[in-house]
Design a binder for these strands. Structure first.
Lengths: 260, 260
DNA sequence: AGAATAATGTTGCCACTGCAACATAAATGT
DNA sequence: ACATTTATGTTGCAGTGGCAACATTATTCT
């Protein structure tokens, strides 16, 4: 019953971090009156859950406003997603107008796009994407209205969909929580509706996905395979999924390690 | 003429950081083929300019998305703003609909409101406010559309103003960068327009301000004193400003230390 | 209560960081 | 071209963090 000490300490570490962004181990150790080793072990755990980001001698908040929904067990695929985002960014030509969905992979895309420094216009429903792009003044960023969705770190709902429907864009980048023969899957129904809207309004729809999502189902089917004209991923989809994608004429773009 | 090396290196360090959030000195040293000491000196400079945040052995980006606008001289008044936010939250009755502006003081209000656990509906143009409120599922949060504004950590522009104009709410909480006899001042013109719109659409407009902003001018006057029917602050406005507020029939609410 | 398990503390060793002092190289101004 | 300033590299040392092994204390389960 008294097993609350560790959890509470970790919660308070998180709170501390939100206030000061970066913190060092001895400080924490002193303020909780525990040994530095205990703190080290705490940080290790929290880093594994994606709650924080370890640094040498301390930790930093692992992305403002990006709630655990994203991070679930994402920490293993960061390199893959990074590559996928980098490759996807290469498709965006100067003066294009694109939509970017909420998600960890699409966030990587946004970061790359900001560095690439092309003059583009972006419509997004995700705060983190907007903030990442915001570092580059040459990118015009329109954020959708809607109901705040903590899971997504952005907005969803009818207001969002209606807003998206007012546009017609060159390209849409969306993520998903799974990809099967039926199509793209998504756990959050409100988010699925936004993805669908973005796909519908784009000349060239593109799905960004790491291979861990292959053959994984989820609550809702966003769209059939044939609506995804392009797929950017890090491995060739194998077996049935691969043939189904070919039959649906989905172009597969591979972000292999060398593409970096 | 060749004095570009250092600047360019620092720019690229910043770009690297935006991609990976946290980075260590030896990595940077190797990728630029310079000594670790050079990198160390670079980071020191950049930290002084507030571009990055130093950690032991490396650096992290200095607050994702929240640009210097907020941080400027904020670190001194945190306690005051915290109290102001707490007092302001008490005005919100159950089932009210309120608007909350972007700003560090209004963010404190949002945090308090989330803890207070009343059933309310909020319209805001600020990501951080939305995320703070998002921890409480009983609060319905509508986020405005608009152009992403890195200074504000939210949206501004005509889309934002038009969206706000569709509503009519019980209360609006806004911040400002200064308060003088002429009224409330604001440095960011686009943000000022949003504040004006919120004030116009609210039954009860309220300005949240710490005493450091008294008698401080800024680029644009948001509105005359008489439009601010309520002022929540931490000290009694002195001299001319005090009498002018009285003449304009602005009700002043004091968040003194005991109110906590 | 007693055994099993989990959490925390302690210690020692090694690798890494920070810093200062000094050396060297590059860029700049006159 | 020369002196001056600025940027960078080098070295040594003191402080700090990481890690692993082991000891100790709480907590949980039966």
């Amino acid at each position: 019953m008294k097993r609350a000490k560790k959890q509470e300490r970790q919660d308070r570490i998180l709170a501390e971090l939100r206030l000061s962004a970066a913190i060092r181990i001895p400080e924490l150790a002193e303020s909780f009156r525990v040994s530095t080793e205990t703190i080290r072990r705490d940080l290790e755990e929290m880093a594994e859950d994606g709650l924080i980001l370890r640094t040498y001698g301390g930790a930093v908040v692992s992305q403002l406003g990006v709630e655990p929904g994203w991070m679930e067990r994402d920490n293993l695929m960061v390199a893959e997603r990074e590559r996928i985002g980098a490759l996807a960014a290469q498709f965006v030509r100067p003066r294009e107008i694109v939509m970017i969905d909420a998600g960890s992979t699409t966030l990587h895309l946004a970061r790359r796009l900001a560095v690439a420094d092309r003059e583009v216009t972006v419509v997004t429903n995700c705060y983190a994407v907007a903030m990442a792009l915001g570092t580059n003044p040459r990118i015009a960023i329109h954020v959708c209205p809607g109901r705040h969705d903590p899971q997504e770190g952005g907005v969803t709902g009818t207001e969002t969909v209606e807003f998206i429907n007012r546009f017609h864009v060159d390209r849409a980048f969306i993520g998903a929580s799974g990809l099967t023969l039926e199509g793209a899957h998504e756990a959050n129904a409100a988010a699925a509706a936004v993805k669908r809207a973005m796909l519908r309004r784009a000349e060239t729809p593109m799905l960004l996905l790491d291979h861990g999502k292959f053959d994984r189902k989820s609550f809702e089917v966003v769209c059939p395979l044939k609506d995804l004209r392009h797929l950017v991923c890090d491995r060739v989809p194998n077996g049935d999924l691969g043939t189904a994608l070919a039959r649906a004429k989905v172009q597969v773009h591979l972000a292999s390690a060398v593409t970096l």
